[in-house]
Design a protein around this nucleic acid. Structure first.
Length: 154
DNA sequence: GCCAACGTTGGC
DNA sequence: GCCAACGTTGGC
């Protein structure tokens, strides 16, 4: 089992989109950064993913989802109507991958970025590093446990 | 809305 | 292979 965090703007896709249809899977597509894509290729079915809300009023970790399908070619790269269309991607040589995710739990309160920055366990995690734009972030078990500890205190 | 930080592109 | 220019991310 591995642990991850994925960033999203909640007006695009939020923890509520998962919570409102907990038996459905949602395709996580549109990742257009090679480092993030490479992390997605390392995901396995059952891995836990923190959902992080960015660029919004309440920035922080909103809940947990689970990987239900490992990386496969992101269909949006071939879709000329999609904002994620990539003219350099071909079916023979896709550039970008998607994974499927399913709801696990929503935290009663967002774990704010300010709070996350106070955790010594997260000091080396790229999420809290200034200027980090990585949208798919690996978490060690110790880092993940430190975050979950906060939810128990809520 | 601002802007620092970052990743990508493309000319050379 | 370098690096300036550009577009995007994301906190504030």
């Amino acid at each position: 089992m591995q642990y991850w965090l994925m960033k999203t703007e909640p007006n695009e896709c939020s923890i509520d989109d998962f919570a409102n249809q907990p038996s459905e899977v949602i395709r996580w597509d549109g990742v257009r950064n090679y480092q993030a894509r490479n992390f997605m290729r390392n995901m396995h079915i059952g891995d836990e993913v923190f959902i992080y809300h960015s660029s919004c009023a309440h920035i922080g970790i909103a809940g947990i989802v689970r990987v239900t399908r490992s990386a496969y070619a992101d269909p949006s790269q071939f879709d000329t109507e999609s904002p994620y269309f990539d003219s350099k991607a071909t079916k023979e040589k896709p550039r970008w991958d998607a994974v499927d995710l399913q709801f696990v739990r929503k935290f009663s309160q967002i774990i704010s970025l300010d709070k996350l920055k106070t955790l010594p366990e997260l000091a080396e995690n790229s999420l809290v590093k200034k200027g980090s734009r990585l949208s798919v972030v690996p978490f060690s078990k110790a880092e993940r446990d430190a975050v979950l500890q906060l939810t128990n205190q809520q």
